[in-house]
Amino acid sequence: MSMNQTAAEEIKADSQAPAYSDNRLRHWLGSRWRPGRWVTVGLPYFWLLLFFFLPFIIVFQISLAEPQIAQPPYTALLEWVDEAVLQVRLNLGNYALVVEDELYRAAFLNSLWVGLVCTLGCLLIGYPMAYAIATAPERWRVPLLMMIILPFWTSFLIRVYAWIGILKGNGLLNNFLLALGLIDEPLAILHTQTAVYIGVVYSYLPFMVLPLYANLSRLDMTLLEAAADLGCRPWRAFLRVTLPLSLPGILAGSLLVFIPVVGEFVIPDLLGGPDSLMVGRMLWTEFFSNKDWPLASALALVLLALLVVPFVALQRWQSRLEGER
């Protein structure tokens, strides 16, 4: 994400100085062979090719196969039936099943729903936090940021397990509420969708806070003074100045939360119940329990397609916002 942002800024800077970038391009193309340059530019592409594009092709190929009890547990797409006949078998049934089956459709919808709710949750909690840190006195900022980042030093899995201890029937939360006399009997939170929301918002909050902080700390506070000077009450100044100027940060944070949450597996598996049906869990079940690799691959690719659409749309919107700036 941050790489994308800096890249976008560079592009923006370039477009502001077209003559310069034109010269630079010519210089770059015309320059003599410099291995260092090619390695620097090539390495990330090589990395993407090796660890993103190749696996993607393999998964795509598996998704068009049929499951079989063998090693590997799926059929080959290309098969010599005769010495001169190469047979191609493309099975689109997996995709048909994923799209048509009620269960899968419900899982996708619920995943998107959880992603949406948790992104909003992170935004509502994370925005005030980021704002408070960004406007805190200089010497407080680093300690406050550390407090956001510190939980990352513990394993993600352990932190989610800790939530079981908090949310379970005789866990910390219920005992606390019982002791206060607010409730008479323990609340059933663990193994419900609510527990998933809580766990996800907790785990992904830093992904929202950090980009928002980066954005808000660059906000020119004299703009708010100017708004006040022009008769704007503090709350309206926030709506008319701070909020629109922090949109790129909101978008960046939302993408960072939404995309991984939709495919989240660990949190719904540990904290969720039978009602918290999510694609990540379905995928896991198909892959490990049912040993249906082709169906699991099809699920993964449909999920990817679902996520790429909003991602590209938001990314374009964001670059347009940045471009206007």
Partner: peptide
């Protein structure tokens, strides 16, 4: 009128 002008960039 602010020294930095403080024009709203958006």
């Amino acid at each position: 009128m602010f020294q930095s002008y403080a024009l709203f960039p958006h």
